[in-house]
Simulated scan of single mutants.
Amino acid sequence: MVAVVELTEGPGTSAVYARAALGLLRRGGGTTLPDVELVRRGVTVDRSHLARYDRVCGLRLTDALPATYPHILAFPLAMRLMSAADFPLPMIGLVHVANRITVRRAIDAGSRLDLAVRAVDLRDHPRGRQFDMVATASVDGAEVWRGVSTYLRISSASTTKGDRPAGPAPDQADGAVWRLPARIGTDYAAVSGDRNPIHTSRLGARLFGFPRPIAHGMWTKARCLAALEGRLPEAYSVEVAFKQPILLPSTVRFTSSPSDTGWEFRVDSKRPHLTGTIA
């Protein structure tokens, strides 16, 4: 039986990161995810915040929420769940490896959203252990949006090699070169609440094996959808796999091409950074 915990206000992400840092001191290694769903009802959108988010991600300013924006609203709930004492894996060090979003209909920025977040399907992976964080947004009792984020905890015993270099872009693909400044990490952290130091601090990035800060995966996904604005229907699913991280600053290439079900797209440089499909 899932225990439903209703919150009357959103948890502060700074406090959650502090608690997560303390969580690194515990051994973890549990075998089950907490059977709990965190819920926050009647969430409204701050239009000035939405405008800042759109600008950081290169999205148009409209009254319809971008597909990735409800992820931002639900993220503090996910952080609270992952930083809890009974969560089997330490939150800091988790790698966001995939994300799937389903938009069931356009969501007006004036809607009152009921958000729910739950962790499911803890399972083995060749490089460690992974699980899915499922978030939903509902309006008047009807689900209008669902996001599934897959997180991986890499084991120190893992010997799996990284992704191979990307092959040549498809002949029919549309392409664009993006020059990403270092501030992308801090700008996105400010609007998303995801202040993981691997995105905002050279020292923090080095602690986790990166020579300099890396771009947020969900910023990259949002930027890809911005490049496809005007060509997407009101209802669709968009799934991405996060490959090699994008070091900041950096220059990358975005390519997209039509498919039988919608679109295929990717971001790469010498190696693949993100691959995605839209249906």
Results as ranks from 00 to 15, higher is better:
D114K: 00
D114G: 04
D114V: 03
L115M: 14
V117P: 06
R118E: 06
A119I: 05
V120W: 02
V120F: 09
V120L: 09
V120S: 05
D121Y: 10
L122F: 05
R123F: 02
D124T: 14
D124S: 15
D124A: 13
H125Y: 05
H125T: 00
H125S: 09
H125Q: 13
P126K: 11
P126C: 07
P126F: 12
R129V: 09
R129M: 12
R129N: 01
R129L: 10
Q130S: 08
Q130G: 01
Q130R: 15
F131E: 02
D132F: 06
M133K: 00
M133W: 09
V134M: 07
V134S: 02
V134F: 07
A135L: 09
A135H: 00
A135P: 02
T136D: 08
T136I: 07
T136V: 12
T136A: 10
A137C: 15
A137I: 11
A137Y: 04
S138V: 09
V139L: 02
D140P: 02
D140M: 06
D140A: 15
G141K: 07
G141E: 01
A142M: 10
A142V: 11
E143A: 13
E143W: 00
V144Y: 01
R146D: 11
R146H: 08
R146A: 10
R146M: 12
R146T: 10
G147C: 13
G147F: 06
G147Y: 03
V148C: 13
V148G: 05
V148S: 12
V148M: 15
S149W: 12
S149Y: 08
T150A: 14
T150E: 15
Y151Q: 10
Y151D: 02
Y151T: 11
L152E: 02
L152Y: 12
L152C: 13
